[in-house]
């Protein structure tokens, strides 16, 4: 068996091992490559930066643990920037598995680092079933959709909700999304109908599809995947959990590129052999 045949018949478990170590090594030995924020992340940051203290923001967290490594850093960095700006955060989810992740970020950032008070500075309304219907109902009355928060406490007399009951009282929607329902539906249902600006952080899988929304102004900012999260972290605080993982990410990409090139090299050599024979 020549080397080409051997490579062609390579057990895929060996490929699995290669990618495993390629991603693992930089976690132990960071390279410290520098991160430069792109225009989409810069616009995301600027949209939040333009808010005034006391403004109310709707934080739409629509994902689940399957996308945690990509999206949790975005949520945390967004909460950090919102806390720095002293705006009120009203969070809700259309994915049932999301509210505990929002709680986790609030406890860690808003309460832990900024001493914000639940019910006064921020609230987690939790999950509500209904997808696009909920998006529209929030334009009628937030209290109608969410009589109580994620822990079952009535939201009516919380100071954070004073003067806020629909999109008319909200300055910006910050969406973190892993798919349906998510960024696409917020743009379709809410952006122009209630004329409210939206910034979105989404998984890398769906990001390329949302570039047209950014160019058209339907999204005022866009973060795509871990790279987007890392760029945003650099803007908010100089570093963060996503930024630390970018070295591993870089090496993973290089190995995939190597696989594509090697696979095609063998294919090319084979087809030449074929035409000679």
């Amino acid at each position: 068996m020549d080397w080409k045949t051997r490579l062609e018949r390579l057990d895929r478990r060996i490929i699995f091992l290669v990618i495993f170590f390629a991603v693992l090594m930089p976690l132990f030995f960071p390279l410290g490559l520098s991160i430069t924020p792109g225009p989409e992340a810069t616009a995301f940051h600027a949209a939040i930066e333009a808010l005034q203290p006391g403004d109310a923001v709707y934080l739409a967290a629509d994902y689940d643990p399957g996308s945690l490594p990509e999206l949790q850093p975005m949520l945390e960095a967004a909460i950090e920037q919102l806390c720095k700006k002293d705006v009120r955060i009203i969070a809700g989810s259309l994915w049932p598995a999301c509210p505990p992740l929002v709680n986790r970020a609030f406890t860690q950032i808003a309460e832990g680092r900024f001493q914000k008070v639940y019910g006064t500075d921020y609230v987690n309304l939790g999950f509500k079933e209904g997808r696009e219907v909920v998006m529209n109902q929030l334009g009628q009355s937030i209290r109608g959709v969410y009589p109580v928060d994620s822990a079952g406490a009535p939201i009516g007399d919380m100071p954070v909700m004073s003067g806020v009951d629909s999109y008319a009282d909200i300055k910006l929607i910050v969406n973190v999304s892993a798919g349906y329902p998510g960024t696409k539906e917020w743009v379709q249902q809410v952006r122009s109908r209630y004329s409210i600006p939206i910034v979105a952080g989404c998984t890398a899988v769906s990001a390329p599809e949302y570039f047209p929304y950014f160019q058209s102004g339907q999204l005022s900012g866009l973060l795509g995947g871990l790279a987007g999260a890392a760029e945003y972290e650099v803007l908010v605080s100089g570093s963060g959990p996503a930024a630390k993982k970018m070295d591993a990410q870089s090496l993973g990409h290089i190995v995939i590129i190597g696989f594509i090139l090697l696979g095609n090299l063998i294919y090319f050599l084979r087809s030449r052999e074929g035409s000679v024979a």
Binding site: F20, V23, E70, Q249
Partner: peptide
């Protein structure tokens, strides 16, 4: 899309590791 999908999948693996 291919490039971005690779990015997404790698991120999830990094998260687990």
């Amino acid at each position: 899309s291919y490039g971005f999908t690779v990015m997404a999948r790698m991120s999830l693996l990094i998260g687990r590791l």
